[in-house]
Design a protein around this nucleic acid. Structure first.
Length: 551
DNA sequence: GTGGAGCACTTTTTT
DNA sequence: AGTGCTCCAC
């Protein structure tokens, strides 16, 4: 494992509390992995170590790297989410008659709330989770619903996701759970809320050591209770804090790094830090000024095609030229999900494959499972029972009527079921389907252009990144967010996803919530110094949704 | 189970 | 001044 100087210092630090500032593309996961391996190498008992993340995806990635390095899966430290850690602690430390609860999933939450004759179910769930995480008070009506919801949950012996953390914290405060770990590592610390902060403090042994990894400039989740001040106040809370800055960026060409460095200094709530590029300057950021959202989509298509080496439609699909890019190289980022729809339709109409994150996997999978099961079961009867599921899928006509995303995901999952009778495989497979997360429905290796919101692009990287809707009102989203610094961090996250080219698009007019709006370019433009960006005005040829082809 | 009225319209994770 | 949803009547 090859580490740079500060990565090495961070991975070997044995200080009481160490905070590692890990800007975009600076090798955070590598360094955390190295730290875990270093501790194990020093002979620390794995049970003394906990590496905590916010998402499964981050946990899986980290765990996989540790497994690959150690060449073993047993006797590993805890590497997982806050929720998994709390679930395990509750199963271990709750009194016998309380510990056999089940998880109250989103679907179950909806069921409970709707049984109380409430509408706006998701709004209510949102308010409840906000209350549990930040103590945001209820209005009178929601308070009553909340009390009934809690009652019902108790009756059914269910804990919701927030309860997992809250109950654990309660047990810690009652001294029913002792400090358990000598080494706690926290990933993405900028996303932390008060409850998670208390949990960490309560689980760390008195002589233990705490390592914090994160980047305050990428804090974009205040709307769900994360508090950037918990990060920024660390030096005050811990006067003996060691700060280490991972400053070398291995992702983006120099122009993108220098522009984003300058851009983010417009914020005041931050630690002063700079990222140094390791790659050379390649090209300027491009800003396209176009007429409307249709011209925006057309610009994206044109730029994709020119980079794939195609001058017309047929060449592209005959794959005549070898180019350094494929559809996988491109991502289009927007502030809202709404904006992605029209882009998706335009790209799809051009035959450009796209993939998006499915917001509601529960309802998606339920219809998908329905669609699959009928065909699978009816066909499986006709087949010899011991062929692997993957081959069964390929030999059947299940793929008819599925999208590329669905097929790719299906194949990925089916490959993991090699053994057992066919019916059992199908049953196991369907069980697994119901546990899907949004990212499972976003197959990484599917050769398609990624369409994402700025939020869901965090942690990812692409050679070519478009940020569409670089309009005042959308970026920053002043339509309903007054926290401009958080909006600036969100755009900073977007900028720093790009490896080679960053392309911004501003449309002079577009429909927002049914209204045709005239928009000026984002006020964030003035925070990017002129020398890093070139502006191209695209004159409208013909516009409108009725038009058939683009070439 | 469906069609039309009424309504809301930012971002999202967690077994 | 568009879209997608939820609800309710049928």
């Amino acid at each position: 494992m090859k580490l740079n100087k500060n990565q090495k210092i961070a991975s070997e630090s044995s200080n009481k509390i160490c905070c590692v500032l890990a800007g975009p593309g600076t090798g955070k996961t590598l360094t955390i992995t190295a730290k875990i391996l270093h501790l194990l190498n020093e002979g620390i008992n794995p049970d003394e170590i906990a590496a905590i993340t916010f998402t499964q995806k981050a946990a899986v990635e980290m765990k996989q790297r540790v497994i690959n390095s150690l060449q073993k899966k047993e006797n590993l430290p805890f590497i997982g989410t806050f929720h998994l850690l709390c679930l395990r602690l509750l199963r271990e430390f709750l009194p016998e008659k309380e510990k056999h609860f089940q998880i109250c999933t989103r679907a179950k939450q909806r069921e409970i709330i709707s049984s109380l004759n409430e509408k706006n179910i998701d709004k209510i769930i949102e308010k409840i989770t906000k209350f549990k995480n930040t103590n945001t008070p209820f209005d009178e009506k929601t308070l009553i619903v909340y009390e009934k919801y809690e009652e019902k949950k108790k009756e059914l012996n269910l804990f919701d996701f927030d309860d997992l953390l809250l109950k654990t914290l309660q047990l810690i405060k009652n001294k029913q759970i002792p400090p358990l770990f000598s080494y706690i590592i926290v990933d993405e610390f900028q996303d932390i809320n008060k409850i998670q902060y208390e949990l960490i403090k309560g689980l760390l042994k008195k002589e233990g050591s705490l390592s914090i990894f994160g980047d305050p400039d990428q804090a974009i989740y205040s709307f769900r209770g994360s508090e950037i001040d918990l990060f920024l106040n660390l030096p005050k809370d811990f006067p003996d804090l060691t700060l280490i800055n991972l400053s070398l960026n291995y992702r983006s060409q120099a122009n993108i790094i220098e522009a984003s460095n300058k851009f983010i200094t417009a914020n005041t709530k931050r630690f002063s830090k700079r990222i140094e590029p390791t790659k050379e300057k390649k090209s300027l950021i491009t800003l396209f000024e176009v007429e409307d959202e249709y011209e925006e989509a057309k610009t994206i298509i044109k730029e994709i095609k020119s980079r794939l080496g195609a001058t017309d439609f047929t060449e592209l699909y005959e794959n005549k030229e070898e180019t350094q890019y494929s559809f996988l190289s491109f991502a289009v980022l927007t502030r809202t999900n709404n904006q992605l729809k029209i882009i998706k339709d335009f790209l799809a109409k051009e035959g450009i494959p796209v993939k998006t994150i499915i917001k509601d996997p529960e309802s998606w999978t339920s219809s998908f499972i329905k669609k699959l099961t009928e065909t699978m079961y009816s066909q499986s009867k006709k087949l010899i029972s011991n062929i692997p599921l993957f081959e069964f899928l390929q030999s059947s006509n299940i793929y008819n009527g599925l999208t590329d995303t669905e097929i790719s995901m299906l194949n990925n999952m089916a490959k993991t079921y090699h053994n057992g009778k066919l019916i059992e495989q199908i049953q196991a497979f369907i069980d697994e389907l119901s546990g899907l997360t949004p990212f499972d429905l976003f197959p990484e290796n599917l050769n398609a252009v990624s369409l994402l919101t700025l939020h869901s692009a965090k942690g990812l990287e692409f050679p070519i990144v478009f940020i569409a809707g670089f309009d005042e009102g959308l970026i920053p989203y002043t339509i309903s967010n007054t926290d401009i610094e958080e909006e600036r961090r969100l755009f900073y996250v977007g900028m720093t996803r790009a490896m080679d080219d960053l392309i911004l698009i501003h449309a002079k007019q577009r429909f927002i919530n049914g209204k045709k709006m005239s928009l000026s370019v984002s006020s964030f433009l003035k925070d990017i110094p002129e020398e890093y960006i070139k502006i191209k005005k695209v004159r409208s040829t013909q516009t409108g949704p009725k038009q058939k082809g683009l070439f």
